[in-house]
Computed example of a mutant assay.
Amino acid sequence: MSDSSSGSSWLERLGKVFSDEPESREDLVDVLKEAQSQGVIDDDALVMIEGVLDVSELRARDIMIPRPQIELIDASEPLEKILESMLESSHSRYPVMEENKIVGVLLAKDVFRAVVKGELSSKEDLQAIYREPKFVPESKRLNVLLRDFKTSRNHLALVVDEYAELAGLITIEDVLEQIVGDIEDEHDEDELSNIQKRAGESYAVQAITPLDEFSEFFDVEIENESTETIGGFLAVQLGHVPRVEEEVEYENLYIKVLKASDRRVELLEVRPLDGVEAGEGMPVAG
């Protein structure tokens, strides 16, 4: 079969699929699925087209990294400690906070270049390479944000709530992953660990973390025959599927739900109780 006849055949098949014009997004998705089933488009193309449609409706709040999970640089800390924290976490961009206010963004490549050139010997040197932070509202649509990322060549934005308080962080990679799926990089293997160190004494803990792993890491004793994960243990203690913002005390730990659906808890924040003010009416597990 010649290329022209093959092209005609493809156009005829596509025209047949779209013979009835879709009147809503749901109709369009049904048409696209029909096109996929007839071999007009492949599975990957269908996933990406649906992702493009999602990006036009989702907002920054829907996919941002919430504030408790952000690796922040505390500008008041000594230079050596700041550099050590950056080395341990191995991210490419770090928001810098001073007196509860974001004052800039540090790019790992800028810091590395300054170190190699011998131009980083003081906190003032570090401040000189701060990048200006970009702030976006929680309600910003992802398709508009993606366009802004492309035109500004700034690939990180800090998400603020209605009170102009830091709510989260979002990158161009986060937006693109809504279209093409997860994009793995050289640090993803580390990011998949169940327990991740965050700013201060805070840890982000996957709810699927086995109880024995959790117990060993935080040096606590948890015995529960009805569940094998920390998320399941929390659900047993609360008597229901944990909800976002719910808090629990267990031995010397403060546990807060960061991410959950109607069916399961997904992500927790865990901190030592020292210095944490327990919320009024906070349940005590045990």
Rank of each mutant, 00 (worst) to 15 (best):
D74C: 05
V159S: 02
R198P: 01
S202H: 04
A285P: 06
V284M: 10
G51L: 07
A260S: 12
V103Q: 04
Q38C: 07
E119K: 15
E12M: 14
V55F: 02
A167D: 00
E216S: 13
N154L: 03
V96I: 11
K101M: 12
E177L: 07
Y163M: 08
L28G: 06
E225L: 08
R131H: 08
V136D: 03
I183C: 08
S89D: 12
K117P: 03
M282D: 05
K123R: 14
I230S: 02
L268E: 03
N154W: 02
L83V: 14
S193I: 13
R271L: 07
N194V: 06
V241T: 13
Y250M: 11
L176E: 02
D212I: 13
T227K: 09
N143Q: 11
R243N: 14
L166N: 02
I73W: 00
V47G: 06
I208Y: 07
E57K: 13
N154I: 01
I70S: 00
L146Q: 04
L253E: 10
I179Y: 00
P68W: 04
I222S: 06
E77K: 09
K150C: 04
D3N: 15
L28I: 12
D3H: 15
L238E: 00
I41G: 05
Q196I: 09
F233H: 06
E186H: 05
V160T: 14
S261D: 15
I222Y: 03
E77T: 13
H187P: 00
G281I: 07
S9G: 13
K140H: 07
V116G: 06
L258I: 10
H187R: 13
Q178G: 09
M282E: 06
T229I: 08
F149P: 02
R198S: 01
W10C: 08
L83C: 09
D219L: 10
V29K: 03
R25I: 10
D20K: 09
E84W: 08
D54W: 04
A60D: 02
L120N: 01
Y203S: 07
R271Y: 03
V284P: 00
E249S: 14
A204H: 05
T171P: 01
R141A: 05
E162L: 09
D212L: 11
A167I: 00
E138A: 05
V111S: 03
S226R: 12
E228L: 09
P133N: 05
V96T: 07
L169V: 02
A35V: 11
E77H: 08
V116N: 08
S261F: 10
I255V: 15
S24R: 10
E124D: 10
L166M: 10
S202T: 12
E119N: 14
F233D: 03
Y203N: 07
G118C: 12
Q38R: 11
L238S: 04
